[in-house]
């Protein structure tokens, strides 16, 4: 049951931030697939919903000098259809495609997925391996911070009262970065991953020169296990190296037991899915 609430759809960022900072209990609304559900369930009872949809420029994917800027209101469907996103961030596009179902992806936004700050968010591990930053505005000033700093804990971000996430800023990856995104879920659709993994590898003369690995759903915040990445550098991208990285990732993971899976199962799956992601990254581009 939804509680009584006010609604505003300001046309400017200044106005939106003003409302969010002045009105006690105001929340920002992007696609609504998380906010509206938590209101339906009574988990959230905002006094005011500030719909961001009329603010211009928040739903575009733009290539700038060495970066791609993805507006916070870009829907999963729009991201999947963006030639720029498909070219530069295939693992992110794949993650977007694995969210919910078609109806949900038509509403759900990349900014909303980040601000919801679920430990198992599909888009976060790919954003981590691509080194994405978020641009946050308070209506007059903007600040930029890495995803790893923006996400503070389950459901908690570094957004201050009156701030809005406007843009994701992602450096164009090196042309030889080979990536993959894999997830373990019980159902193919409408299911949250128990473990999700994004990886990126660069090779020179057959040896790994750079490894990026990000794990989701196995810690309060998705993260990059540095030990697992380092163990790969200088090695041949073979089964033994992938197993060493997978073992290191499993050690770094801090999963919990909940209704969907036990901590032990998640740890075991980290190992399996890191191995699979690494093998898949090499295979796709081979």
């Amino acid at each position: 049951m939804l509680l009584q609430l006010e609604y505003a759809a300001p046309a400017s960022l200044e106005e939106a931030c003003g409302l969010l900072s002045r009105v006690e209990g105001a929340v920002a609304l992007a696609g609504g697939t998380d906010v509206v559900v938590s209101m339906n369930h009574g988990k959230a009872s905002p006094s005011l919903v500030v719909d961001l949809k009329r603010i211009r420029g928040l739903d575009e994917v733009v290539e700038t000098d060495g970066f791609v800027e993805i507006g916070a209101l870009v829907s999963m469907t729009k991201l999947m259809g963006s030639a720029t996103a498909r070219r530069w961030f295939p693992a992110l596009v794949q993650a977007a495609a694995s969210i919910g179902c078609w109806q949900v992806r038509n509403l759900a936004t990349i900014g909303g997925n980040l601000c919801n700050a679920s430990p198992s968010a599909d888009t976060t591990p790919p954003l981590l391996i691509y080194g994405a930053s978020v641009v946050v505005s308070d209506g007059t000033r903007t600040r930029e911070s890495p995803i790893g700093e923006f996400l503070v804990g389950p459901g908690v971000t570094a957004l201050a009262k009156g701030e809005v996430l406007t843009t994701l800023r992602i450096p164009m990856p090196p042309a030889d970065l080979q990536t993959a995104y894999v997830r373990r879920a019980i159902r193919r659709s409408m299911d949250i991953p128990l473990v999700n993994v994004a990886v990126g590898l660069r090779l020179a003369d057959g040896y790994v020169t750079e490894a990026r690995i990000a794990l989701g759903a196995v810690a309060p915040v998705p993260f990059r296990p540095a030990e697992a990445e380092e163990v790969l550098v200088g090695r041949l991208p073979d089964a033994a190296a992938f197993q060493d990285a997978a073992s290191a990732a499993a050690v770094a993971a801090r999963p919990i037991t909940d209704v969907r899976a036990s901590a032990e199962y998640r740890s075991a799956m980290v190992e399996v899915f890191v191995r699979r992601a690494l093998a898949s990254a090499i295979e796709v581009s081979a």
Partner: peptide
Amino acid sequence: CGEGECGACTVIMDGLPVNACLVLAPQAD
């Protein structure tokens, strides 16, 4: 379900299917 899981409330909005239970009425203006 009223939470975007079952699809029974699917309508086509601006050419795309959406769950009508996940859209606030003013959003559909």
